[in-house]
Amino acid sequence: MADIELRSYVYLDSLQPQHAAFLGTVAKGFLPVGVQASLFIEIAPGIAINHLTDVAVKATRVTPGMQIVERLYGLLEIHHDDQAEVRRAGDTILREIGATEGSRLKPEILSSQVIRHLDDRQTQLINRVRHGHMIVAGQSLYTLEVQPAANAALAANEAEKAARIKVLEIVSFGSLGRVYLAGEDRDIDVAWPAAENAVKNLSGRPHGHK
């Protein structure tokens, strides 16, 4: 299984309450709860994710929340009360594809912006497409785009640890990951550096290198 490319290997030590609630909304599999450890693995080709889920659930007691095969890539989210169990599932998967944690792609931020004091009319467009909290008029909105996509989960989780924001949307699969956060200016201004730093500090191979 050496021809599987590891794109994301994102370990979350403790799912934050809103992030857990968000996954509880969008996940089609077993639902996580707050403070569980979680691992997001993203690979190419997408369909190979079926094999990695097989390896993870047979080797350990982790429960899968999401397994998504999209156009190009495959995403697997697994979680468990024990950090050790999740780490062990991750090691098993890495061994299976002949990779190490460091062979993931180094996340790259494509855009990161704050829109302050959102207009009533714009909030309504956002509210129609989000799955998490609603944004209300007058709040500020932070959006982040990152690749590979699964790193969006890390950015959102670390932002929620740092600041009192509302998690509107996290897209953790596809060609770009996206995070939408809302809140008061003072909270958004703490959240966005936390989100950026979380992904910037992650090691990995540069884009374009196999």
């Binding site: 909030t123 509210n127 609603m134 209300v136």
Partner: peptide, 8 residues
């Protein structure tokens, strides 16, 4: 605000 957002 929230009921408006909800209706939205």
């Amino acid at each position: 605000p929230q009921l408006a957002a909800f209706l939205g």
